[in-house]
Design a protein around this nucleic acid. Structure first.
Ligand SMILES: [Mn+2]
Ligand SMILES: [Mn+2]
Ligand SMILES: [Zn+2]
Ligand SMILES: [Zn+2]
Lengths: 137, 137
DNA sequence: AGCAAAAATGCAATAATGTTGCAAATTTTA
DNA sequence: TAAAATTTGCAACATTATTGCATTTTTGCT
């Protein structure tokens, strides 16, 4: 079965044009995508609202995860690990290139252990590193 | 000399009501502040635009630094390390409490070393950990 | 295939957030 | 204290996000 359909079915989502198109974008994209990127790439084939709702659904289902940024935007990237609805466990470092501005999931760079002071209960750890990516150097 | 004045003077900023008030907020606040928090706390004593510009100025001068978030907002916190204009070196971990929703600078938890794949040049590393803070447990 | 139920979409209205230019007010400097 | 420099508020505008509801699409079933 087609990979797209597979992912949607597995997550009990009805398969629609919008979802297929957006999911395809993520599968093809080497890096993370922002809402704006998706709107551009899809050439306004569907409404902004649909994009918002699709992204939200995908995050809830654990199909994509979001990456914290420092500039008032949200970036989304495909979950390669086997994330579940409501609980992500993408345990990798994210890299933002200052030159090409792409955000890349470094799937093979593990999140380091961080020891917190007494009394803190640790749930999720995000590591975002900026610099120059291997393409741009 | 008053601490507020001291900080502003040291950074060659003219001391105005707005700057004093906002800086005071940061000095008093245990956690990080978003633009919206500041607007609320200052009771609309000054214009939104002034708040935007003040935050921008403070970041540029290295008085505050911003903290990446996953929700389309920017958080700001006082720089305790001796940051300079244009170059921050707050080398600490940030913690977001899932219960009280506060974001705290863990000044004494150092950013761990992360080894990147060949070809990547590392510039800045942000670590944001979520969980339950020591107050809320 | 055809139909009813369920779910997703588009549209419009509205809200929230951020940016810019410029005149008036405030602060600094001399 | 006056002039120069800087900051502020206002207004207008731009961008981004949210919500309700009617219409369309998809799904599950016969
Ligand atoms: Mn990732
Ligand atoms: Mn901090
Ligand atoms: Zn690059
Ligand atoms: Zn807490």
């Amino acid at each position: 079965m087609d990979q797209l359909l597979d992912i949607l079915k597995r997550n009990q989502l009805s398969v629609t044009e919008g979802r297929k198109k957006i999911l395809e974008l993520f599968l093809k994209s080497p890096g993370a995508l922002a809402h704006a990127d998706i709107e551009k790439s899809t050439d306004a084939s569907f409404d902004r609202v649909t994009v918002y709702r699709t992204l939200q659904t995908f995050v809830e289902k654990g199909i994509i995860h979001n990456i914290p940024t420092t500039d008032n935007s949200i970036l989304y990237a495909l979950c390669r690990d086997n994330c579940e609805a409501g609980h992500h466990h993408d345990n990798h470092v994210h890299f933002i290139c200052d030159v090409c501005d792409k955000t890349i999931c470094l799937e093979h760079v593990a999140i380091p252990e961080v020891k917190l002071p007494k009394g803190f209960k640790q749930n999720q750890t995000d590591v975002v590193i900026s610099g120059v990516c291997s393409e741009c150097r």
